[in-house]
Structures are given as structure tokens and as C-alpha cells.
């Protein structure tokens, strides 16, 4: 039963991420990317990280995919992507890297991570919030500063342009 859930989530994630890159229309690509993120959120739920799953949906689909769609619609259709001569070679390279990493991971980690069925305190919301505030509070502050800087930067990029036009 659980295997089926995992399998379907993994299939959806992988298939829609391939579609995201290969769909001819960028709007379809963005929608497929959204579905891939949704599948990833499902995997997070499956791994008892429900809060991260909710965060993933809100940030990735609620913000990033919307932003991408907005940009795609503003920029206009970018049809007729010219084929790249390196295509086959890089496909081969990607597969090779994946295989190499995959075997390395499978050999090294299968027995080292037994994974208890019941997560207990390791997935607790209270533990998460304690770690986030008490242990990593400074990093959180820095992250929010960086976030503010990035938002201001993005706004400046978009705004100065409008004035010069």
C-alpha cells in the first residue's frame, strides 16, 4: 500500500519534470513544473515532513510558478527552440552522472540508514521550531536579511527599467 503511494508520487514527479523541460509551450512547461513540485510536496508528506510539504506548496507553486507564468506571459511565446548539437552528448553525460551517483548512493547508504517506521521526536513540530529558533536563530535572521535584499534587488531591476523607457 505505502509502496504504491511512493511509486505514484515518484512517477508523477519525474514524468512532469521531464515534461517541464520538453513541453513545446513554456506555459505548459511551467504548469508541469508546478505538478512536479506538488509531487515533491507529496514525497515530503510521505517522509513525515508535513510542515515542509505545506511550505513547499505555498512557496514553490504559490510564488515561484506564478512568477514564472507571469514572466512567460509578459515575455511572450518563445517558440522554435533551435536544436543544439550537443544534445545527445549532454543527455549521455546526465545519464552517466546519475548512474554513477546512484550506484554510489545505493552501495554506501542502503544499510546505514535503517529508518525507523515511527518517526517520533525527529519529525516533531515542536522539535522543528525549537531547532529553528534556538539553534539556528542567527541563520534565520541572516536569511531574512538576504531575502529582503533579494526582493529589493528584483524590484529595482524591474522598476528602473520602466522609468528609462
Amino acid at each position: 500500500m505505502t509502496d504504491l503511494v511512493f511509486l505514484s508520487l515518484a512517477t508523477v514527479t519525474i514524468a512532469s519534470s521531464i515534461l517541464a523541460l520538453e513541453a513545446r509551450d513554456l506555459v505548459y512547461g511551467a504548469a508541469a513544473l508546478g505538478i512536479a513540485f506538488l509531487g515533491m510536496a507529496g514525497l515530503f508528506f510521505y517522509l513525515d515532513a508535513a510542515y515542509i510539504g505545506a511550505f513547499q506548496i505555498a512557496v514553490y507553486i504559490g510564488a515561484v510558478v506564478v512568477l514564472i507564468l507571469f514572466t512567460v506571459m509578459l515575455v511572450g511565446p518563445q517558440l522554435g527552440e533551435p536544436p543544439l548539437e550537443l544534445k545527445r552528448l549532454s543527455l549521455l553525460a546526465a545519464i552517466l552522472v546519475s548512474l554513477l551517483l546512484g550506484t554510489a548512493g545505493a552501495v554506501s547508504s542502503a544499510s546505514a540508514f535503517p529508518g525507523p517506521d515511527n518517526c517520533g521526536s525527529g519529525c516533531d513540530l515542536i522539535g522543528l521550531s525549537n531547532a529553528l529558533i534556538n539553534q539556528y536563530g542567527v541563520q534565520l535572521e541572516f536569511l531574512s536579511l538576504v531575502l529582503a535584499a533579494a526582493v529589493i534587488g528584483a524590484l529595482t531591476l524591474a522598476k528602473t527599467d520602466r522609468k528609462t523607457e
Binding site: 506555459v27 504548469a31 508546478g34 508535513a50 510542515y51 510539504g53 505545506a54 511550505f55 506548496i57 505555498a58 507553486i61 504559490g62 510564488a63 510558478v65 506564478v66 507564468l69 507571469f70 506571459m73 513540530l125
Partner: peptide, 19 residues
């Protein structure tokens, strides 16, 4: 985490309106 999940699902709807 019912409340964050509710609000996270809600954020999907403007995307659909845009589409």
C-alpha cells in the same frame, strides 16, 4: 499541520485563475 496546509492549498487558486 492543518492550518498551513489549508492556507498553502489556497495559494494555488490565483495560479489557476491566471491560467
Amino acid at each position: 499541520v492543518g492550518l498551513p496546509v489549508f492556507l498553502a492549498i489556497v495559494t494555488l487558486s490565483p495560479t489557476l485563475v491566471l491560467l
